[in-house]
Simulated assay, not measured.
Amino acid sequence: MKKSLIYLFVLLCLGNKAQQTIMFTQYTFNKAGMNPAASGTDITKEIYYCVGLNRQWVGIDNSPNQSFLNVSYTIRPPRSYKRWQNVGVYFDNDNSGLIGSQGIYANYTIHYLIRKKLIASFGVFAGVRRYSRSTAGFDINDPAVAKTKTSLFLYPDIIPGVRLTDKKYFVGLSVRQISIYKLQDFKGRKIGSPSKLKPSVYMEYGRLMTLNDNLLMMPSLALNTPILGLPLIDLNVMFYYANRVGLGAGIRNTSFLSGIFQIRFLENMTAGLAYSYPINAARYAAQNSFEIMIGVVPMGMDAKLTGRHSIAKCPVLSY
């Protein structure tokens, strides 16, 4: 009972900072899920895939949890590598207390080599999103509850994005909830009064730095903010050793401190684990949050290294 009361207090205190779109600690690993323009930036990777899950405040009922699956295919031109395309599908699931949502999207991205090693990318997710509310804790005889749907399918959900990618840095921007802005469908059915969904902007920046023959460092920043709202700001720094292991740390606003571990276990696959500890009032109710991802080797673990411990790579065209 005491833990439940503390959790309720935390939710009330942090209500103004609640995220309306999914955010991951390992956002550079799940780059295409955060920005569709990041899908297929590496022309040498014909097939890209990544799967992951996130659990916040483990041990608390109805605590936030997210999961995703991303698969895409790069269409490489037969001769010139000045332009190439990428197509795929993306699925995500987001449950945050009484409200949950699931989305499935088709994605299309086109990449232009605008100068040596610099790529300009333009991408879009287009799909449908299902929103639902929990029936627990509500009086079904209440007229206000009776008028509210338990689930809705909202479409089209359009998420555009742009990105610049170089061997040493990336910078990108995407926008969500621009075609779906409230929990109400075309027939007037709604959840809530209806609840409004604020358009949100996702911005990212990262730079890869060589420390020695086998060690790379990549500081990065991700900002996820609703229009006219308080932003979620993630600051991460990763260290990659010999294309085999990644270690890092991150902080999100005044909410979480995170530790990140990534390991390459096959030629082209990596597993990542992030553990987050709350640094706000949530630590009195639940102290453990974690995130797991498995997918194609991320940026920072696929560089061309010269050290004696690095993984040997044949010469390839890689931007």
Rank of each mutant, 00 (worst) to 15 (best):
I47N: 05
Y155N: 10
V297G: 04
Y108R: 03
L164S: 10
M293A: 15
K190F: 12
Y181K: 04
G192Y: 13
R252H: 08
I47S: 05
L228Q: 06
D139Q: 03
E204A: 01
A274N: 14
I294S: 07
T210W: 02
L14I: 11
N236P: 10
N212Q: 04
L221H: 01
N253E: 06
P156W: 13
I104V: 08
Y169I: 03
D234C: 02
D61G: 06
L221Y: 01
F68P: 01
M299Y: 14
S39T: 13
N30Q: 13
N95H: 01
R55M: 10
L118I: 00
Y48M: 06
F170V: 06
T150S: 02
R283A: 09
P77A: 07
S255M: 14
G295R: 14
R176I: 08
S276H: 11
R133V: 02
L197K: 00
A285E: 11
L273T: 08
L118Y: 07
M299N: 15
P231W: 07
I158S: 10
I6M: 11
L197W: 03
L247G: 05
T148I: 08
I119E: 00
M217W: 14
F170H: 12
Y108L: 03
G307V: 09
I180L: 03
I178N: 09
N107C: 08
P298C: 14
Y155W: 13
N62Y: 11
F122I: 03
L223G: 00
A303M: 13
I294C: 05
F153E: 06
V171S: 14
Q66M: 11
V162W: 09
G295A: 13
L305H: 10
L273M: 12
